[in-house]
Write a protein that binds this DNA or RNA. Structure first.
Lengths: 195, 195
DNA sequence: ACAGCAAGCAAGTAACCACTTGCTTACAAC
DNA sequence: GTTGTAAGCAAGTGGTTACTTGCTTGCTGT
């Protein structure tokens, strides 16, 4: 096992245990065990536990793939549905990590914000997309794009975070949910039908 | 100081420290100190720390006031705006507690679900309201009420949780935000204008 | 005046935490 | 064949945690 492998597996283990147990619950012993590495080795690669968690979150944020959204909107219904489906899938997959990060905001604002900067850039892209669509006359001119972004992203976020926590509130399958949300959203922004 | 006062202040202190630091960060020492009480007294009132946190969360969930929404919808725009404003205010005030509870879901599902049951009953009332409005022909018949509920509540939830965390994503004041969201939502469900 | 109860206080226990030290093993380069 | 490097391992340090014990203080009802 090469040095980079050890480092990689430590980062991976730290991220997993952080998502499941928070920074206090992700002890160095458990991280080392999960990584299949001696605890002392952990401290040879990182100066302290906080630096390890920090590196793990940053490495993860950097490798997050960017979702595509056309520069020039054509078929809003189709394009938004694909985007919403991908985004929701992404949120749902990372729900434990996101919940834990947000839960530790009061204690660790910097670390939390670092994890959230991905969400900001995604929101900016969607806002740009909606602004362009508005200028092109594809949607109603009387709504605020950033508010509409907050609406669609909030809807997907709430679903992804709450679905396993409160199944009673989501009595429809995940794939149907996105269709519902996008249809409601299209009418909210006054999108004209395209064939 | 009477015995009930001590108990009350312990519950209050436990809730505050739990919201700010999570269950691991809310140590019995700090809880006792925050409550202005000796640490031993804490263990005279509660068998252990978990029981205290449990009681604190339950007492809080029980005292949560119920939001009003008319049984028979009349002026959807006005009624939903009042409701949304109240609900958002409530979520925003409790954002730290909600984030922490959700963040500990993987570790403590029962405790978390207990805190979330309030949200479920709120969602049910909104869904009932929308269903009634749909039957009365006040809104479009072609959307799923529970999905629309998820949309409005998700939007408010995302705003309340993310506003202090990612201010860049919410470049408008809180009072304007609700107006934007409700207007978008009204058009999403095909609400007819009422004067 | 006195009994009972609720709280304070000092101290201690056993477990766990992050992190360190000293030493050994294995491999790879020159 | 020696040297450098990365890892393992056992043990330990000092601090913190939940929780306990024994004893003292102060208020209350009778």
């Amino acid at each position: 096992m090469v040095a980079t492998d050890v480092r990689e597996s430590l980062l991976k283990a730290a991220l997993k245990l952080f998502a499941e147990h928070g920074s206090r619950g992700a002890t160095t012993r458990r991280i080392a065990q999960e990584a299949g590495v001696n605890e002392v080795t952990l401290f040879r690669h990182f100066p302290n536990k906080q630096a390890l968690l920090h590196a793990a979150l940053r490495a993860f944020a950097e490798q997050t793939p960017y979702l595509r959204l056309p520069d020039t909107p054509r078929d809003l219904a189709a394009e938004l549905e694909v985007w919403a489906r991908d985004h929701h899938k992404h949120l749902y997959k990372l729900r434990a990590l996101i919940r834990t990060s947000m839960g530790e905001f009061e204690e660790n604002p910097e670390q939390c914000k670092q994890a959230m900067c991905v969400s900001i850039s995604i929101a900016n892209k969607l806002t740009d997309y909606l602004t362009t669509a508005q200028r092109a006359g594809l949607v109603s001119p009387d709504f605020t794009p950033s508010a509409a972004t907050a609406m669609l992203m909030g809807t997907l976020f709430g679903d992804a975070m709450g679905r396993d926590l409160m199944p009673e509130r989501y009595p429809y399958a995940m794939r149907d949910a996105i269709t519902h949300y996008v249809q409601l959203f299209l009418r909210a922004i006054g999108a004209r039908e395209v064939k």
